[in-house]
């Protein structure tokens, strides 16, 4: 690791000021991606601004059918939350399936979505549920937030502060994990929401995306796995590596979507 300075502010304003004062400073939340990245010298920030001591970023609140999860909320906390299990069990199950128990004890929802790893689970949950990403400046629909590989709509000096989810009618997440890394080769989050049926795919492309052909089939033929029979997803632009070809990933998207629809009940 290259050397850096370290600050642990206690307010969002102080964190933003610290980040604004140094163009090469980076925020750190759980650090489960950032610290390995630093150790491999793939990044060399001059300063780390730790968000862990900012009380406004922590915790889960419920208002009616809306869950608000603070950016610094750990995956294990989401997985164990009675409120999340009651309102959106698919989201609790998604959190329970991230990494391993030690990663879940440290990693955070805000860090995961701000990083937007193309194989991460939370981006699929946010896009699939049509979540609202709350920042220190504005509220963004998940559809506008995730903009491609490791990139988001966040501007300089803008931090994710919370994610708001509305209880769907039904939802489920199913992934096909790489047997070694456990990252999703393909993960599909399906949800029937007030705004329609949404199918979000992670692991398969440059970033999370909605499988519109699958959404249309479920909307026209009904929310059932059989509605996806014979519905193919194009392999154009999908990832191809030693683990899976683009064609295999395209095939897996429909398979995972069918399993998710069946699991959503």
């Amino acid at each position: 690791m290259y050397a850096f300075t370290y600050q642990k502010p206690t307010t969002i304003a102080a964190a933003v000021a610290a980040l604004g004062a140094d163009a090469d400073a980076k925020p750190v939340s759980g650090g489960q991606t950032l610290i390995p990245t630093l150790k491999q010298r793939l990044a060399a920030p001059t300063a780390l601004v730790d968000l862990a001591k900012i009380p406004e970023l922590a915790g889960i609140t419920v208002a009616g059918d809306t869950l608000t999860i603070g950016a610094m909320t750990r995956h294990a906390t989401v997985a164990d939350s009675a409120d999340v299990k009651r309102l959106i069990p698919a989201l609790a199950a998604l959190a329970e399936g991230i990494g391993d128990p030690q990663v879940r004890n440290r990693g955070t929802i805000g860090g995961s979505i701000a990083n937007n790893d193309p194989a991460a689970d939370y981006p699929a949950g946010c896009l699939g549920l049509g979540a609202t990403i709350v920042t220190n400046r504005r509220e963004l629909a998940a559809d506008a937030f995730f903009t491609g590989m490791f990139s988001t709509a966040l501007d300089d000096g803008e931090l994710v502060t919370a994610v708001k989810f509305t209880k769907p009618k039904r939802a489920a997440y199913v992934k096909f994990p790489n047997p070694a890394s456990r990252y999703a080769i393909v993960g599909v989050f399906v949800a029937e929401t007030a705004g329609g049926i949404r199918v979000a795919v992670t692991g398969a492309g440059a970033g999370v995306f909605r499988a519109t052909a699958l959404e249309a089939a479920l909307a026209s033929k009904g929310f059932a796995a059989a509605s996806l029979d014979g519905v193919a997803v194009s392999a154009d632009g999908l990832n191809s590596d030693i683990h899976a070809s683009a064609e295999y990933r395209a095939h897996l998207i429909t398979v995972m979507a069918k399993r998710a629809v069946a699991a959503a009940g």
Binding site: Y6, K8, V28, G31, Q32, I35, P36, K39, L48, D50, A52, A76, D100, P101, Q102, V103, N105, R106
Partner: peptide, 26 residues
């Protein structure tokens, strides 16, 4: 030393964590 093997697991405030993937200052 890459957060995978768990030989470095300790408890931080009672919860298990990988001490190779945490800064002492955190």
């Amino acid at each position: 030393d890459t957060s995978q093997c768990g030989a470095c697991v300790v408890h931080v405030d009672g919860a298990s964590a990988k001490s190779c993937t945490l800064l002492a200052v955190q």
